[in-house]
Amino acid sequence: MQKPVDNRAWFLVAPVFMLVAFNAILPLMTVVNYSFQDTFSNNQFFWNGVQWYVELLDPRSELGERFYESLGRSLAFSAIILAIEVPLGLMVALSMPKRGAALALCLMLMALPLLLPWNVVGIIWQLYARDNIGLFGWTVNAIGIPFNYTNSAVSSWVVIVLMDVWHWTSLIALLCYAGLRAIPEAYYQAAKIDGASRLLVFLRIQMPKLQRVLTIGILLRFMDSFMIYTEPFVVTGGGPGNYTTMLSINLVKIALGQFDLGKAGAMSIVYTLITLSVCWLFYTVITTREGKEGAAS
């Protein structure tokens, strides 16, 4: 069939283009704009070239030091919570009941933390982990382990990691559970006939079939944890000292605390690029690996 060519059809895309420009491209460009300028006050801006970027990426400068330290913390945080939440979520999904009231109860309990707003979770843990009135903090101290997240770096990290695991493990578990349910019964029957052990069933059937949902799960959890702001801010406010000051908290401090729009702009752009490139890298690796093995499955 001959398709008619009419370039006026591009006008039909214009509304979407304008909407995207208005709510995504223009705000981003504003940030880009600030990142190349300096200001003292009174909305007076001066062209500053790439100086902010140079400073930001130079670990010897004050800004660079702050940037690299908080970037390191953010990456460490993401790595820790992924290392805990993925295996834990997988284990929960594998041991969930297959049907009946127990399943409904499981699903409901697991969905519950996902529905709580971030700052509510922050407040819950802020109170729960206190060494004087919080059940968790008090108990840990009571069994002889010193625990105080307001003055110990280790304690504060334990709290924010636990809090994230508490909040988000069910996401991984639910995704994996859905993935597991999608495996046809015949696979398990065939494995029985082939005499496969429980471990081999997991390695040869369940893991390969879960690859896709796990990819999505890891991607979501990485992005979310790398951008985490509210929860640690509510619990520790970035402290003690700067021990829990993530990249996002640092950014807000620079932008709104010090009103250094130029530095904050440059940091935002680099921050965004890191997130985008990690996601792109991750996604590309996974999809090309699948592509090599053949798309049909």
Partner: peptide
């Protein structure tokens, strides 16, 4: 042995490994 309605193969294994699987087990 049973052959099912939808082909059941171990995705990540080669054809030869698939065939060897029941014997290895």
């Amino acid at each position: 042995a049973q052959v099912f309605q939808f082909p059941v193969v171990y995705d990540t294994m080669t054809v030869a490994d698939n065939l060897a699987f029941p014997l290895q087990n």
